[in-house]
Amino acid sequence: MDPLFQLLLRMGDNTLVLGHRVSEWCGHAPVLEEDIALANTALDLIGQTQMWLGLAGEMENKGRSADDIAFLRDIWDFRNLLLLELPNGDFGQTLMRQFLFDAWHSIQLGHLINSSDPRVAAIAEKAAKEVAYHVERSADTVVGLGDGTDESHARMQAALDYLWPYVGEMFQSDAADLALVKQGIAPNPASLRGDFDALTRRVLAQATLTIPQDNYAQKGGKTGARHTEHLGHILCQMQWLQRAYPGETW
């Protein structure tokens, strides 16, 4: 697979799958303001998906639209991080996942703004402005809940312990990544770890949470080698209409 196409799928599938997960909260959040914030975040992520997968379809030149790529692929063709397909859990777990992703996402986009490919740089610049708001809010919420009541602290620590093994995948590099580095299109994922650790350590310390010692990493999402069983259930929800009524529009 062309390395640039691979990058576009990885970026677009990350935002698509997380956007879908976050949208599951619509109408269910603990307070109205949080409900609106979650819906806004999901909307931004789906908007970014349209740009990434739209460009993927354009450069593939087989006439596939962003919708075709989102709705008509099966599990093994998805390239999102495993972290993002995990079920939401409670509100705290959802916001912890959001923070861990936002931290990586904001750093990754900061590099992609300087991509040698002007189309990638333009999307990154647009998305980075939105993600700056996401990371501000998710970091604030993680601090508020982590350094909150005994109950909220315990839940946030449990969320961090549960999600931490899914963090390492963000920084794994493969042949496609190295080809993109060579062409100046994208940074080496491994090189983002320092900035990520600095940001997450600062916020999680403020949240009075302890980062797990074990850095064992679950992997298989960004390569497509092995997704969790949860992705199939998401696609069932997300794709049933396009599968049941091919070509349907409204």
């Binding site: 609106i36 914030a37 806004n40 975040t41 708001y133 501000e136 809010r137």
Partner: peptide
């Protein structure tokens, strides 16, 4: 009150 409102 919130960084997010009725529209993006």
């Amino acid at each position: 009150i919130s960084q997010f409102g009725s529209t993006p």
